[in-house]
Amino acid sequence: MRTLLITGPGGAGRTTIAAATALTAAREGTRTLLLGTDPTDTLGAALGTPVTGPAPTPVAPDLTVWRPDPATGFRAGLTALQDRATTALDLLGAARLDPEELTPLPGAAELALLRALRDAALADDAHELVVVDLPPSPGALALLSLPGELRRYLRRLLPPERQAARALRPVLGRLAGVPMPAEALYEAAARWDLELAATEAVVADHDTVVRLVAEPSPAGLDAVRATTLGLALHGLRTDVLVANRVFPEPTADTRLAGVVAQQRKAVDEWRESYDVRTVDHLGRDPRGTDDLAALAVPAVNTRQRTATVEWPVVDRIAEDGVLVWHIPLPGAVREDLDLIRRGDELVVTAGQFRRIVPLPSGLRRCTVSGAGLRDGELRIRFAPDPGLWPAGR
């Protein structure tokens, strides 16, 4: 199964392109699932068919659309959590919340989408392609990094190694006179970790790529540059940049001449770094499958695999006595970069984006000796720690 994540700056026609891409793939005979998160059902408006509901909605041959309901999953998850934490709630004298009074908290829609994406990947041969209409780029990057961040928080709060002492918890509970964390809590944490890992694996899979949608303009140039940096920091791949709502040339309307020239300049600049496909402006907001079919969106090759983004570690011990970690960060500015080594993790900040990454095993036995940005690539130098490095290496 191939997964296509579509994002871009807000207002660039991201949802319309996602719907048109899914419809085009379905009409070519590819079994396609289109996922969305917008609470106002913009996907349904673009397709001309409401897609709100608890289950996926077939809207055309080989095309199913689903906008997961965050309320259902939120209520079910919190009810299950209350059931597992009954002992602690009773100890505190806390009153349980009824499912009918629960309102989804911020982030519930994102979690519902990630769960749907994971379930689609686990479904055997149900779909050949999943197209995901992500939020605008800053929110999309936060959403895609959410599984990894939640796993890190979960392991910090309930370290797996502490489960080795679970046989002692009843004894400790009697000695202390208070209930100890129940076995069910650790079992739930392990289950959540597996579910988050499965979602993380879908995002990191070599058959998952990101497609950017932006209007060719000065603001679009800035937004795409920032988004590309954020994607690179998270190791995500971009297959195509869709320049949307492009006015045809030449135009008889002299009032549009300046806009056309501006768009041409932006597209030419993008073509220096991206595989750019242009989608013409229809002269109206696309509504319904006929309008979507009129948009010349780029096709999706469900059989072609995209090369993974590598962060190689280069062994230069023989020449310079160091190992060098190469991290591609196109568009990064030296003044906006920051690095912090914290235990076996490296905190990398690039502009408005930040990522905490575990160090490869060899680099954990080293100290950071320097870093530099060169040709859109961050190169971090690690010197072996004599106390940890294997003798004779």
Rank of each mutant, 00 (worst) to 15 (best):
297 V>W: 00
106 P>F: 11
286 P>V: 07
301 N>Q: 05
281 H>C: 02
270 W>V: 10
230 G>Q: 02
349 T>Y: 05
19 A>Y: 00
227 T>Q: 12
288 G>T: 00
254 T>W: 06
186 Y>K: 10
195 E>G: 09
112 A>V: 10
236 L>Y: 05
98 D>P: 09
361 S>W: 13
89 L>K: 03
385 D>F: 15
112 A>W: 02
129 L>R: 02
124 D>V: 08
87 T>Q: 12
276 V>E: 06
293 A>M: 01
94 A>E: 06
306 T>W: 05
92 L>R: 15
237 R>E: 00
324 V>S: 02
55 A>L: 04
306 T>Q: 00
213 V>G: 01
195 E>R: 09
50 P>K: 03
116 A>Q: 08
359 L>N: 05
70 P>Q: 06
158 L>R: 11
196 L>A: 15
252 A>G: 13
213 V>R: 06
362 G>M: 08
27 R>F: 07
360 P>N: 04
357 V>L: 10
61 P>Y: 09
44 G>P: 04
15 T>P: 06
13 G>A: 13
284 R>D: 01
343 G>Y: 13
222 D>M: 11
241 L>A: 00
300 V>F: 06
191 R>V: 15
299 A>E: 05
50 P>Y: 02
20 A>N: 07
214 A>F: 13
203 V>Q: 12
14 R>C: 09
217 S>P: 09
295 L>S: 02
226 A>E: 12
